[in-house]
Design a binder for these strands. Structure first.
Lengths: 215, 215, 215, 215
DNA sequence: AATGAATGAGAATTCATTCAT
DNA sequence: GATGAATGAATTCTCATTCAT
């Protein structure tokens, strides 16, 4: 998962126009605090103190507390999704690509609890999330996943009698199902084992097979 | 799961001395509100308004907001556990009893989302829960489960080389794993299918079997 | 200080018509609690709990919290003043009577911190005190003190060129001055030494003396 | 006692960086209210109303009600102590300095009842006082007093056979004893007479004297 | 680009008190 | 003579947010 980049430069530098220092400090502060407690119990005052800026500055850059969360999320998602897309494209064969995607996704949840919790828990109940850039990034990601599946249908490696969107739902649901409890109770996930298990079931189910001759 | 009783009389009437009207209204109000939003975002003022009482009355009957939650929980658990114990005792054979228990448990989570969410999510992070009556009820329940397992060991229907507490943990963990995601995202659970799956794995694993002759 | 009575029967039984049990328990509870904390931080609920009665009963017998305080005070003052008057009357000579009075007063403050604090601190800032029975008792006491002084003026043992009320004020002020710091900081008072010191100054000042022949 | 400064500029302007207007108004409001009633019965809402600010602003500048009290106190003490130190240093001879110190102290209690009451009564029962800046100022003051005494020992004007700290305790205890009742009952103190009396006893006791030849 | 000052709305909790029975 | 149920007004404190500079 893009080890190169994380060593040279963290994902929050990955921008055309880098953030002004204050904005960057604020986002970093929220990231830090999310590692310590839930979003609801993080206060603007916490964030400001942690960032070494005044509370007012937060409202210069962000509409409100949730907007800050969404921007932090979008930034991370942009980093993760862009990286993953590139890596996946470098692989041959839709099934192998799916494997890679599933592993990457689970591995991301495991190695980045903060974002796992935000994505799986904090963000979904609020309407404004679905209007945010972060949600746009997620859509870009699921569109990419869909494209991989459709590619597999086109080249015959994935059965065509189940709608691609259903298959996508199955995969995303499976990942979620596998990672949610660990995320909630802060247990670690074994990404290899978990993705292997999931692939065993899912890939088995979606690949076409010889019709066994009846009778 | 004691359908009969829920028709004639709801579980919150199940008491020798019924609650004073105000207390009952408060508990009912919390139950209602928990169906609408998370515990953290329910305010005392919400509860009071919903119950049609003053905020002060809540503090007459409950130490604080969490104590109210625990009492609501304890009341429900008392109802559920007592009912389940009776039904399970009426069944012959520890394995059948386990089956019944597992199904009841999952079915309770499915048909009572509010309590499922409280038990699986809201309550665990706070120390005072473990001092509450509600937790005592849970302990009574898990003791009962343990007793069923031990009974099975005694009569030979459950293997004796795994500690009973480990088996219990396996069952409870399996139930949790199966129900948590549905609970969080308010999806419905298919209790029969879910418990069948779980039983298939668990019961298979804990019943003794003929040693296949080697070679 | 009336040891006999305190052994046979405590002062709160000293009434023509004894209190109904609930009332007695309430007053006893306040007395107890005053030994533990300030009046302001004693709640009606504290008192009720301590007395083993309901809060409502307190309002059956007392207009409000301060009225309860005043009644407790009045009861004690009645006991103390009646006892002291009798003892003082049994003594011959106004100067000896004054001595006795001063000692008794100081000794009461020392051996009964609760009442010392109430009288010296809690009660004075509130207008309703001066309308209470307790204040009437205090007036009876200071009247008695005045009478002793006037008796001394009549029989020539006390000088007549200072108004009796001024002398009384001197005595009461002296007692207060001597006892207040100990009361506030919960130090013990040595009644004998303290009253001896006070008498040395006061009695010296108020007794008539030979006019030294001038020049 | 630095009369000059109190005319030109009140002590609460004595700072390098003056307080923000809101903070100053809050502190002034508490000072005012302390002249009217006890600290315990002054509410945050009282203070805010009196200062013409919102209650929330109080918590911007002060941790809580007691912290506000301590800061008000510290500010006054800083003013008083600094002024007194300077005046005392301008005097020659430790005994004269002690005289000045004692008079200043008593005079301060007399002319500034509000602070006298806080220092003598309100503040002592609470642990956090002893962690406050105000207490640090008091310590600075008593250290200064000790230094004067030790200076006197060095130059032979104060006897060396009593520990300096004991002498200090004697002086401070004497002042307290002399001022407490007047403070509580809002009577005025005569600083000259009171300090003369105190000095008569104390200075007499601590100066070395010719040993009278025995026999 | 950033700050300092201030706010309004509302959170949990406390407490003296009332009243019908 | 005593209780059980309930209240209203206050209290301390929190927090997201705004705005002039």
């Amino acid at each position: 998962m893009a080890e190169k980049e994380t060593i040279d430069s963290p994902f929050w530098d990955f921008h055309d126009k880098p953030h002004p220092p204050g904005k960057a400090k604020i986002m970093a502060a929220l990231r830090t605090l999310l590692g310590e407690k839930e979003f609801v119990s993080i206060t603007i005052s916490d964030i400001a103190r942690n960032a070494g800026v005044t509370e007012a500055l937060i409202y210069k850059y962000f509409k409100d507390k949730r907007d800050l969360l969404h921007q932090v999320l979008a930034e991370y998602l942009n980093f993760y999704i862009t990286g993953t897309e590139n890596e996946v494209r470098a692989i041959k064969g839709p099934l192998n690509q799916l494997r890679k995607l599933i592993w990457s996704h689970i591995n991301m949840y495991d190695s980045n609890r903060v974002f796992a919790r935000i994505l799986l828990l904090e963000v979904r109940n609020f309407a404004d999330y679905f209007l945010s850039d972060a949600y746009q990034m997620v859509k870009r990601y699921t569109d990419f996943l869909l494209a991989v599946i459709e590619e597999g249908m086109k080249d015959g490696s994935i059965r065509r009698d189940i709608p691609a969107t259903v298959i996508r739902q199955l995969i995303l649901g499976g990942i979620e199902h596998a990672c949610l409890p660990s995320t909630i109770f802060s247990r670690s996930i074994d990404p290899v084992k978990t993705s292997d298990n999931l692939c065993a079931i899912v890939l088995e189910g979606i690949t076409p097979r010889f019709q066994p001759a009846k009778g």
